[in-house]
Design a protein around this nucleic acid. Structure first.
Length: 876
RNA sequence: GCCGAUGUGGCGAAAUGGCAGACGCAACGGACUUAAAAUCCGUUGGGCUUAAACGGCCCGUGCCGGUUCGAGUCCGGCCAUCGGCACCA
């Protein structure tokens, strides 16, 4: 293998062109104000989800999305766009810290090494990133602004009147700390005693830590929270005008989990207070035969009777010991305990028992529910188990039984709303409750506020100090706040963050100490797309004009004009990928195309949208949404059809592939495998096939002389292409253009293969067709196309050319083949002139011998003629 | 349980409601070669018919039904695989 001849000298030419691109700054995107900035060029911002630089390096899954965006970036440049296509490192995070704990090596060192490795891999693939814009979330010059944005959030509140984030100075109440968008609360967290640290929800799998598999328990701790719930409605509504996959929108919708209903107050028998419950079905109030409180509900202590107290206490203790997983165990039976107290159903005025049960969650709604067993599965199960009364109050429209019916129907046994359909019954009973001061319409969300602090070393420190148990923001001039140099990164074991060990650092002044929590890994990735616009700016997180240019609508007009000049696909069909040609109206999102894994469907994308909206409200960014168009690439599996992992030994390193087949073959194979969004297995044989295609491209224009050197083939000549050659060239321009626009790279490559096959074994190859082809190939295989472009002695670099345009007129044939069907089955094919009329086609079909045979003794009932396509003779 | 995605040759996959399987892989046959590799040419969904070739015929896109002159594609109902959520009142 080692001495095996390369099918073409990619090992020489790929590094050569990569060096040229670096030297000529070929892919540098100038910002407004830079010397070579051209205000007439429309902008295009195409972004990858930047990676966490792990020690393992990239595997072939990472570059799938990166290759797709690179093709788009190069294509857009050839179409006259100023393209922002950056790359950077999301480098804070647990693995580097864990490694530090094990080896004592500082995370900064590990991070530097890993970044170098990742960058070398990416550069060898030949991506056209503007490396001058490289950023790293662990760089103080970067996280200075992460901390700055945190302070913007900290110094803001959500004004319910304007439904916007506003500076805290506009707040007129008496508890500013109670309304800030960043606040401190005592909340239950995932505490892992073994790791001595708190874990994020996503780091807990089935009640165990993702790292090490140690048990995780819930424990209340003082935490920083971000008030994302205030934006729930805007995060929900904002989805509408984004070009995102439907599934992702749905996931976010479900995550936000908006539900409309009512809050109803139940008086407590022989007690002062009342119990408030949330329900989406106020129309079933008459069927409410019991109340259930979450075991942790604060009212439980007040209402429980003397004799029930031992049972209640035991149940609460048992519940507290359960992990979330055990508690959510669906197969188990319902459990619960009677409190001894009763409430009054405001509709029936009957006394109903109050229970506690762990199927009611403290964190949702009011932590209490009204049990309507006849029309709720869970309540029914509970009522059956504990022998509670069941009253039917909804009559289904069909002939189903009312018992256990959970859908919409007609209210029965409910004097105030009898006979009303569910929707109206809800409205009327809610009004009735409102009039009597016993309830009101209410909306609830599943979305919780964002737990924003971590007890970790390797993250952004909070720019906050504490003085007499009150928090206070640092001033902007004190940023960046760097973490202290620590020898020992180990968790303290008490839940106190490692930063607390740096006593000198913690002591801010005589009276004040620093916050010792750090921010979660999400923080850096919440705004990195903004920093890419202006990565070296040391006065602002992003320059105003620059932000308007790359993230705003100021340039939409230029883009529109440019698009009109461009070849537009005829009809884009049903593909979900169509790049909207600026839609001729302003869109809410700034980044034009964002490609990344579906695993970030909810958290990263929701968090980033939240920060962006705060920045938008405060006037720091120009559009309300960060990402206009989102595409998720599918996972690449190992050759054995299993997920790539060390465990199966099926991980493939891009550099190993490139060593044998070259970067261009690697890129093309990544795209040729199948549709971008689909999950698909890797195949080395497949890479070989694509590599053969590139070798055929090479030999189309190059031959080996006697000395074994490659030189321009004599077959390539300055001649007019034949009609057939012209036709396939234009067909290829059309297909490749449309397929890139639709992100259907696999079929674009197929078409280029068809093109090359058509020219293989041709004695005289017209150089004009080759020129056109090389530009089409360039986004996919930039190295080989650059080299051949130079070998053909074309003026200028291929990266400076303009994308070819096709002529529809050259695609039409003089004679077309028409399919003749009888009853939908193909019987024959005939050639007819292009201008054949329907009558002529009809007659030709009826007269055709094979058609007549197939019709036999049947009568022709009808003849369907589809112009330029087929004739179907219907006989019976 | 709920929500979503997917289901087409030996394999990866194509196919505005209009010739199913483009393109690639693998396999087989041939040319070149002392030989092999590489390269080039050809065959390749299944079955039947025919001595053979040519040809001809039937079946075929997870299953069942529907709409239509015509369905891989649209509609309804199932099944399987994968992914997400999971007592959210």
């Amino acid at each position: 293998m080692n001495e095996r001849r390369k099918p073409y000298p990619f090992d020489r030419l790929e590094p050569k062109w990569q060096a040229i691109w670096d030297e000529t700054r070929a892919f540098h995107a100038p910002n407004p104000g830079e010397d070579n900035f051209d205000p007439n060029k429309p902008k295009f911002y195409v972004l990858d989800m930047f990676p966490y630089p792990s020690g393992a390096g990239l595997h072939v899954g990472h570059p799938e999305g990166y290759t797709a965006t690179d093709i788009i970036a190069r294509y857009k440049r050839l179409n006259g766009f100023n393209v922002l296509h950056p790359m950077g490192w999301d480098a804070f995070g647990l693995p580097a810290e864990q490694y530090a704990i094990k080896t004592g090596q500082h995370p900064a060192v590990t991070t530097r090494e890993n970044v170098a490795k990742f960058k070398a891999q990416l550069k060898r693939i030949g991506f056209s990133y503007d490396w001058e814009r490289e950023i790293n979330t662990t760089d103080p010059a970067y996280y200075k602004w992460t901390q700055w944005i945190f302070l913007q959030i900290y110094n803001s509140w959500f004004n319910p009147k304007t439904k916007k984030a506003e500076p805290i100075s506009t707040y007129r109440g008496d508890d500013p700390d109670g309304v800030r968008l960043a606040y401190v609360a005592e909340v239950p967290v995932n505490w892992c005693p073994e790791l001595g640290t708190v874990l994020a929800n996503e780091e807990v799998i089935d009640g165990k830590s993702e790292v090490g598999g140690y048990p995780v328990v819930r424990r209340p701790m003082r935490q920083w929270m971000l008030r994302i719930t205030a934006f729930a409605d805007r995060l929900l509504d904002g989805l509408e005008d984004l070009d995102w996959p439907k599934g992702i929108k749905l996931l976010q919708q479900n995550w936000i989990g908006k539900s409309e209903g009512a809050e109803i107050d139940f008086k407590i028998d022989r007690h002062e207070g009342k119990i408030r419950v949330f329900t989406t079905r106020p129309d079933t109030l008459y069927g409410g035969t019991f109340l259930v409180l979450a075991p942790e509900h604060s009212l439980v202590d007040l209402i429980v009777t003397e004799e029930q107290w031992p049972d209640v206490r035991e149940y609460r203790e048992k519940t507290a010991r359960k992990s979330d997983l055990e508690r959510a165990e669906l197969t188990k039976e319902k459990t619960g305990v009677f409190t001894g107290a009763c409430a009054i159903n405001p509709a029936t005025e009957q006394k109903i028992p109050i229970w506690i049960a762990d199927y009611v969650l403290l964190g949702y709604g009011t932590g209490a529910i009204g049990g309507v067993p006849a029309h709720d599965e869970r309540d029914l199960e509970f009522a059956k188990k504990f022998d509670l009364p069941i009253v039917e109050v909804v009559q289904p429209l069909g002939d189903q039984p009312a018992f256990g019916f959970v859908g919409d129907g007609i209210a029965i046994n409910s004097p105030i709303i009898n006979g009303l359909p569910t929707a109206e019954a809800k409205k009327k009973i809610t009004r009735w409750l409102e009039e009597r001061g016993q309830g009101k319409g209410a909306i609830n969300y599943k979305l919780r506020d964002w737990l924003f602090s971590r007890q970790r070393y390797w993250g952004e420190p909070f720019p906050i100090v504490w003085q007499v148990s009150r928090h206070q923001a640092l001033t902007e001039s004190e940023l960046p706040l760097e973490p202290p140099a620590l020898e020992d990164f180990k968790p303290t074991g008490t839940g106190e963050p490692p930063l607390a060990k740096a006593k000198d650092w913690v002591r801010y002044s005589e009276a004040a100490t620093r916050e010792t929590n750090t921010m979660p890994q999400w923080a850096g990735s919440c705004w990195y797309y903004l920093r890419f616009c202006d990565p070296q700016n040391d006065r602002r997180f992003v320059g105003e004009e620059t932000e308007r240019y790359w993230m705003g609508g100021a340039n939409d007009e230029a883009r529109m004009t440019n698009d009109e000049r461009m070849t537009k696909p005829e009809s884009t069909g049903s593909s979900s990928f169509v790049i909207r040609h600026s839609s001729f109206q302003s869109t809410p999102g700034g980044v034009d195309l964002y490609i990344g894994g579906v695993e970030h469907a909810v958290l990263h994308l929701l968090y980033a949208r939240f920060w962006h909206k705060v920045l938008f409200d405060l006037g720091h960014v120009s559009k309300p949404e960060p990402f206009q168009r989102l595409v998720n690439q599918g996972m690449i599996l190992g050759e054995d059809n299993r997920k790539m992992s060390k465990r199966w030994g099926n991980v493939i390193d891009p550099l190993d592939v490139i060593e044998i087949y070259g970067a261009d073959a690697f890129r093309c194979y990544e795209m040729f495998m199948g549709p971008l969004e689909q999950m698909k297995p890797w195949s080395m044989k497949g890479v070989e096939g694509v590599s053969r295609f590139l070798a055929r491209v090479w030999r189309l224009m190059m031959t080996e002389n006697q000395a074994g050197e490659w030189e321009l083939s004599a077959a390539v000549q300055e001649i007019e292409p034949t009609k057939a050659q012209q036709k396939i060239t234009h067909a290829t321009v059309k297909k490749v253009t449309e397929d890139i626009e639709g992100l259907a790279f696999n079929t674009a490559i197929s078409q280029m293969m068809i093109f090359v096959n058509a020219f293989t074994n041709t004695e005289a190859i017209p150089v004009s067709a080759m020129r056109t082809f090389l530009v089409l190939l360039n986004p996919f295989a930039p190295h080989i196309s650059s080299e051949l472009w130079q070998q053909l002695k074309n003026p200028g670099a291929i990266t400076e050319q303009t994308w070819p345009v096709y002529d529809e007129k050259l695609l039409v044939e003089d004679e077309i083949e028409i399919v003749l069907q009888v009853n939908g089955k193909v019987r024959d094919r005939i050639k007819v002139p292009l201008d054949a009329t329907n009558d002529q086609l009809d007659a030709a079909a009826r007269g055709n011998e094979k058609v007549r045979n197939a019709v036999g003794s049947q009568t022709v009932r009808k003849v369907v003629v589809v112009a330029n396509k087929l004739v179907n003779v219907v006989a019976a």
